[in-house]
Design a protein around this nucleic acid. Sequence first.
DNA 1: CCGACAACCTGTGAGC
DNA 2: TGCTCACAGGTTGTCG
Length: 277
Amino acid sequence: MPELPEVETTRRGLAPVLANRVIQGAVVRHRGLRQPVPRGLAQKLAGAAVHALNRRGKYLLFDCETGDHRRGTLLIHLGMSGRLWLVDAKTPPQKHDHFDLVFDNGRVIRLRDPRRFGLVLWLKGDPLAHPLLSSIGPEPLTADFDGTVLHRATRSRSAAIKLVIMDSHVVAGVGNIYANEALFRAGIDPRTPAKRISRARCDALAREIRNVLAEAIDAGGSSLRDYVGSDGMAGNFQNNFLVYGRSGEPCTRCGAVIRELKQAQRATCYCPRCQKR
DNA sequence: CCGACAACCTGTGAGC
DNA sequence: TGCTCACAGGTTGTCG
Protein backbone atom coordinates (compact mmCIF):
# COMPACT_ATOMS: atom_id res chain seq x y z
CA MET A 1 0.00 0.00 0.00
CA PRO A 2 1.11 3.35 -0.91
CA GLU A 3 3.20 5.57 1.19
CA LEU A 4 6.11 7.32 -0.45
CA PRO A 5 8.44 4.31 -0.08
CA GLU A 6 5.95 1.99 -1.77
CA VAL A 7 5.31 4.47 -4.55
CA GLU A 8 9.05 4.77 -5.05
CA THR A 9 9.40 0.99 -4.93
CA THR A 10 6.70 0.72 -7.57
CA ARG A 11 8.44 3.34 -9.68
CA ARG A 12 11.73 1.51 -9.54
CA GLY A 13 10.07 -1.77 -10.37
CA LEU A 14 8.18 -0.41 -13.35
CA ALA A 15 10.83 1.82 -14.89
CA PRO A 16 12.79 -1.02 -16.57
CA VAL A 17 9.56 -2.48 -17.93
CA LEU A 18 8.77 0.79 -19.67
CA ALA A 19 12.18 1.41 -21.18
CA ASN A 20 12.00 1.64 -24.97
CA ARG A 21 8.39 0.52 -25.00
CA VAL A 22 5.37 1.90 -26.77
CA ILE A 23 1.88 1.93 -25.29
CA GLN A 24 -0.44 -0.11 -27.44
CA GLY A 25 -3.57 1.02 -25.65
CA ALA A 26 -5.32 1.47 -22.38
CA VAL A 27 -8.45 0.07 -20.79
CA VAL A 28 -10.65 2.08 -18.47
CA ARG A 29 -13.12 -0.12 -16.60
CA HIS A 30 -14.20 2.36 -13.96
CA ARG A 31 -13.94 6.10 -14.40
CA GLY A 32 -15.10 6.94 -10.89
CA LEU A 33 -11.85 7.57 -9.08
CA ARG A 34 -11.12 10.60 -6.88
CA GLN A 35 -11.56 12.57 -10.08
CA PRO A 36 -13.13 11.01 -13.17
CA VAL A 37 -10.64 9.32 -15.49
CA PRO A 38 -10.70 11.65 -18.51
CA ARG A 39 -12.71 10.59 -21.54
CA GLY A 40 -10.54 9.84 -24.53
CA LEU A 41 -7.55 8.87 -22.39
CA ALA A 42 -7.17 5.46 -24.02
CA GLN A 43 -7.06 6.97 -27.52
CA LYS A 44 -4.55 9.56 -26.36
CA LEU A 45 -2.25 6.89 -24.93
CA ALA A 46 -2.40 4.51 -27.90
CA GLY A 47 0.90 4.70 -29.75
CA ALA A 48 2.60 6.84 -27.11
CA ALA A 49 6.18 6.24 -26.06
CA VAL A 50 7.10 6.44 -22.38
CA HIS A 51 10.31 8.40 -21.97
CA ALA A 52 10.57 8.20 -18.20
CA LEU A 53 8.72 7.34 -15.03
CA ASN A 54 9.10 9.98 -12.34
CA ARG A 55 7.71 10.52 -8.85
CA ARG A 56 6.62 13.66 -7.03
CA GLY A 57 5.45 13.00 -3.49
CA LYS A 58 3.10 10.03 -3.86
CA TYR A 59 2.29 10.82 -7.48
CA LEU A 60 3.70 8.75 -10.35
CA LEU A 61 4.37 10.66 -13.57
CA PHE A 62 4.66 8.75 -16.82
CA ASP A 63 6.43 11.12 -19.19
CA CYS A 64 4.86 10.34 -22.56
CA GLU A 65 5.24 11.34 -26.19
CA THR A 66 2.01 10.67 -28.03
CA GLY A 67 1.65 9.40 -31.59
CA ASP A 68 1.38 12.95 -32.90
CA HIS A 69 4.64 13.86 -31.13
CA ARG A 70 3.07 15.86 -28.34
CA ARG A 71 4.47 15.64 -24.84
CA GLY A 72 2.15 14.80 -21.98
CA THR A 73 2.10 13.13 -18.58
CA LEU A 74 0.02 10.24 -17.37
CA LEU A 75 -0.46 10.98 -13.69
CA ILE A 76 -1.32 8.12 -11.32
CA HIS A 77 -1.93 8.35 -7.59
CA LEU A 78 -2.65 5.21 -5.59
CA GLY A 79 -4.76 6.77 -2.86
CA MET A 80 -5.27 4.58 0.19
CA SER A 81 -5.76 1.20 -1.45
CA GLY A 82 -4.27 1.42 -4.95
CA ARG A 83 -1.64 -0.89 -6.36
CA LEU A 84 -0.04 -1.33 -9.73
CA TRP A 85 0.40 -4.90 -10.90
CA LEU A 86 2.43 -6.14 -13.80
CA VAL A 87 0.46 -8.83 -15.64
CA ASP A 88 0.13 -10.44 -19.08
CA ALA A 89 -2.55 -9.17 -21.42
CA LYS A 90 -4.48 -12.40 -21.09
CA THR A 91 -4.76 -12.20 -17.31
CA PRO A 92 -8.46 -11.70 -16.56
CA PRO A 93 -9.18 -8.51 -14.63
CA GLN A 94 -10.54 -8.93 -11.15
CA LYS A 95 -12.90 -6.84 -9.14
CA HIS A 96 -11.52 -3.30 -8.62
CA ASP A 97 -9.06 -3.57 -11.53
CA HIS A 98 -10.04 -0.17 -12.93
CA PHE A 99 -7.30 0.70 -15.39
CA ASP A 100 -4.82 -1.07 -17.70
CA LEU A 101 -1.86 0.31 -19.55
CA VAL A 102 -1.13 -2.16 -22.35
CA PHE A 103 2.33 -2.30 -23.91
CA ASP A 104 3.48 -3.47 -27.31
CA ASN A 105 5.14 -6.55 -25.82
CA GLY A 106 1.95 -7.89 -24.27
CA ARG A 107 2.72 -6.71 -20.76
CA VAL A 108 0.15 -4.77 -18.84
CA ILE A 109 0.40 -2.36 -15.93
CA ARG A 110 -2.88 -2.79 -14.07
CA LEU A 111 -4.31 -0.50 -11.42
CA ARG A 112 -6.32 -2.13 -8.65
CA ASP A 113 -7.92 0.27 -6.20
CA PRO A 114 -10.88 -0.96 -4.11
CA ARG A 115 -11.57 2.31 -2.36
CA ARG A 116 -11.10 4.42 -5.49
CA PHE A 117 -9.31 7.26 -3.75
CA GLY A 118 -6.68 6.98 -6.47
CA LEU A 119 -6.26 9.13 -9.55
CA VAL A 120 -5.56 8.64 -13.25
CA LEU A 121 -5.19 11.88 -15.19
CA TRP A 122 -3.62 13.22 -18.35
CA LEU A 123 -1.59 16.40 -17.97
CA LYS A 124 -0.58 18.59 -20.87
CA GLY A 125 2.49 20.75 -20.81
CA ASP A 126 4.59 21.09 -17.69
CA PRO A 127 3.14 18.58 -15.21
CA LEU A 128 4.66 20.36 -12.22
CA ALA A 129 2.59 23.41 -13.09
CA HIS A 130 -0.63 21.45 -12.58
CA PRO A 131 -2.55 22.52 -9.47
CA LEU A 132 -2.23 19.07 -7.92
CA LEU A 133 1.57 19.26 -8.08
CA SER A 134 2.44 22.94 -8.09
CA SER A 135 1.81 23.51 -4.40
CA ILE A 136 3.43 20.34 -3.06
CA GLY A 137 6.26 20.94 -0.60
CA PRO A 138 9.88 19.85 -0.99
CA GLU A 139 10.82 16.25 -1.70
CA PRO A 140 12.04 14.81 1.60
CA LEU A 141 14.85 12.78 0.03
CA THR A 142 16.47 15.62 -1.89
CA ALA A 143 18.55 18.57 -0.76
CA ASP A 144 15.37 20.67 -0.96
CA PHE A 145 14.38 19.46 2.48
CA ASP A 146 16.25 19.87 5.75
CA GLY A 147 15.89 21.27 9.24
CA THR A 148 16.12 24.84 8.01
CA VAL A 149 13.21 24.34 5.64
CA LEU A 150 11.16 22.52 8.25
CA HIS A 151 11.89 25.17 10.88
CA ARG A 152 10.80 27.96 8.57
CA ALA A 153 7.63 26.13 7.51
CA THR A 154 6.53 25.46 11.07
CA ARG A 155 6.95 28.94 12.60
CA SER A 156 3.37 30.00 11.80
CA ARG A 157 1.79 26.66 12.67
CA SER A 158 0.23 26.12 16.07
CA ALA A 159 -1.18 22.74 15.01
CA ALA A 160 0.37 19.53 16.34
CA ILE A 161 3.69 18.70 14.69
CA LYS A 162 2.42 15.34 13.46
CA LEU A 163 -0.35 17.00 11.47
CA VAL A 164 2.06 19.56 10.06
CA ILE A 165 4.60 17.04 8.74
CA MET A 166 1.71 15.15 7.15
CA ASP A 167 0.69 18.34 5.32
CA SER A 168 1.90 17.79 1.75
CA HIS A 169 2.47 21.51 1.35
CA VAL A 170 5.10 21.39 4.10
CA VAL A 171 6.92 18.28 2.91
CA ALA A 172 5.90 15.82 0.22
CA GLY A 173 4.95 12.23 0.82
CA VAL A 174 4.99 11.80 4.61
CA GLY A 175 2.02 9.60 5.48
CA ASN A 176 0.61 8.41 8.77
CA ILE A 177 3.02 5.56 9.40
CA TYR A 178 6.19 7.47 8.68
CA ALA A 179 5.03 10.54 10.57
CA ASN A 180 4.65 8.33 13.65
CA GLU A 181 7.97 6.59 13.11
CA ALA A 182 9.96 9.76 12.41
CA LEU A 183 8.60 11.50 15.52
CA PHE A 184 9.55 8.52 17.66
CA ARG A 185 13.06 8.45 16.24
CA ALA A 186 13.43 12.18 16.80
CA GLY A 187 12.08 11.91 20.36
CA ILE A 188 9.28 14.43 19.77
CA ASP A 189 5.78 14.20 21.24
CA PRO A 190 3.40 14.19 18.25
CA ARG A 191 1.06 16.66 20.00
CA THR A 192 3.69 19.38 20.34
CA PRO A 193 2.61 22.63 18.65
CA ALA A 194 4.79 22.82 15.54
CA LYS A 195 5.89 26.40 16.13
CA ARG A 196 7.28 25.47 19.55
CA ILE A 197 9.82 23.01 18.16
CA SER A 198 13.36 24.35 18.30
CA ARG A 199 15.72 24.66 15.39
CA ALA A 200 17.83 21.78 16.70
CA ARG A 201 14.81 19.51 17.00
CA CYS A 202 13.67 20.48 13.50
CA ASP A 203 17.09 19.33 12.31
CA ALA A 204 16.62 16.02 14.08
CA LEU A 205 13.08 15.57 12.79
CA ALA A 206 13.98 16.37 9.18
CA ARG A 207 16.89 13.95 9.45
CA GLU A 208 14.69 11.16 10.84
CA ILE A 209 12.01 11.71 8.20
CA ARG A 210 14.69 11.22 5.57
CA ASN A 211 16.20 8.24 7.38
CA VAL A 212 12.98 6.34 7.88
CA LEU A 213 11.80 6.91 4.30
CA ALA A 214 15.17 5.87 2.89
CA GLU A 215 15.31 2.75 5.05
CA ALA A 216 11.79 1.81 4.02
CA ILE A 217 12.65 2.20 0.36
CA ASP A 218 15.65 -0.04 0.88
CA ALA A 219 13.45 -2.65 2.56
CA GLY A 220 10.92 -2.52 -0.28
CA GLY A 221 13.69 -2.59 -2.81
CA SER A 222 14.86 -5.94 -1.56
CA SER A 223 11.85 -7.61 -3.13
CA LEU A 224 11.01 -5.38 -6.05
CA ARG A 225 10.08 -8.05 -8.53
CA ASP A 226 7.55 -9.60 -6.20
CA TYR A 227 5.95 -6.27 -5.45
CA VAL A 228 5.43 -5.23 -9.02
CA GLY A 229 4.70 -8.77 -10.09
CA SER A 230 1.56 -10.47 -9.01
CA ASP A 231 2.28 -11.37 -5.41
CA GLY A 232 1.32 -8.04 -3.97
CA MET A 233 3.18 -6.19 -1.30
CA ALA A 234 6.54 -7.75 -0.69
CA GLY A 235 8.47 -5.04 1.12
CA ASN A 236 9.41 -6.00 4.64
CA PHE A 237 9.74 -2.66 6.39
CA GLN A 238 6.60 -3.33 8.41
CA ASN A 239 8.81 -5.54 10.57
CA ASN A 240 10.81 -2.44 11.44
CA PHE A 241 8.00 -0.29 12.81
CA LEU A 242 8.97 0.95 16.25
CA VAL A 243 5.66 2.51 17.30
CA TYR A 244 3.06 2.23 14.54
CA GLY A 245 0.60 -0.56 15.33
CA ARG A 246 2.39 -1.32 18.59
CA SER A 247 0.21 0.36 21.17
CA GLY A 248 0.17 -1.65 24.39
CA GLU A 249 3.56 -3.18 23.63
CA PRO A 250 6.77 -2.17 25.39
CA CYS A 251 8.91 0.50 23.76
CA THR A 252 11.93 -1.08 22.08
CA ARG A 253 14.15 1.65 23.53
CA CYS A 254 12.94 2.17 27.10
CA GLY A 255 10.31 -0.47 27.81
CA ALA A 256 7.48 1.96 28.59
CA VAL A 257 4.10 0.98 27.16
CA ILE A 258 3.42 2.49 23.72
CA ARG A 259 0.27 4.62 23.72
CA GLU A 260 -2.24 5.39 21.01
CA LEU A 261 -4.48 8.40 20.44
CA LYS A 262 -6.33 10.08 17.59
CA GLN A 263 -5.18 13.17 15.75
CA ALA A 264 -7.45 14.35 12.93
CA GLN A 265 -9.15 10.95 12.95
CA ARG A 266 -5.81 9.17 12.36
CA ALA A 267 -4.06 6.82 14.75
CA THR A 268 -1.03 8.28 16.51
CA CYS A 269 1.30 5.87 18.33
CA TYR A 270 4.08 7.13 20.57
CA CYS A 271 6.26 6.35 23.53
CA PRO A 272 5.30 8.53 26.50
CA ARG A 273 8.81 8.31 27.92
CA CYS A 274 11.03 8.71 24.83
CA GLN A 275 8.99 11.46 23.15
CA LYS A 276 8.97 14.91 24.74
CA ARG A 277 7.17 18.16 24.08
C1' DC B 1 -3.56 32.34 6.19
C1' DC B 2 -4.90 28.76 9.58
C1' DG B 3 -7.39 24.88 11.76
C1' DA B 4 -11.25 21.70 12.28
C1' DC B 5 -14.09 18.67 9.97
C1' DA B 6 -16.62 16.20 6.35
C1' DA B 7 -16.37 13.90 2.19
C1' DC B 8 -14.99 10.46 -1.25
C1' DC B 9 -15.33 4.43 -1.19
C1' DT B 10 -14.81 -0.60 -0.06
C1' DG B 11 -13.02 -4.29 2.74
C1' DT B 12 -11.90 -6.37 7.08
C1' DG B 13 -12.01 -7.73 11.69
C1' DA B 14 -13.87 -7.31 16.37
C1' DG B 15 -17.69 -7.78 19.27
C1' DC B 16 -22.32 -9.12 20.20
C1' DT C 1 -23.56 -17.34 11.07
C1' DG C 2 -24.78 -12.72 10.58
C1' DC C 3 -25.23 -8.05 11.88
C1' DT C 4 -23.17 -3.44 13.17
C1' DC C 5 -19.47 -0.64 14.02
C1' DA C 6 -14.90 1.20 13.87
C1' DC C 7 -11.12 1.60 11.27
C1' DA C 8 -7.64 1.41 7.25
C1' DG C 9 -1.12 3.33 4.24
C1' DG C 10 -4.72 9.91 1.28
C1' DT C 11 -6.24 14.24 -0.29
C1' DT C 12 -9.46 18.01 -1.17
C1' DG C 13 -13.02 21.27 -0.23
C1' DT C 14 -15.67 24.07 2.88
C1' DC C 15 -16.52 26.88 6.64
C1' DG C 16 -15.56 29.83 10.58
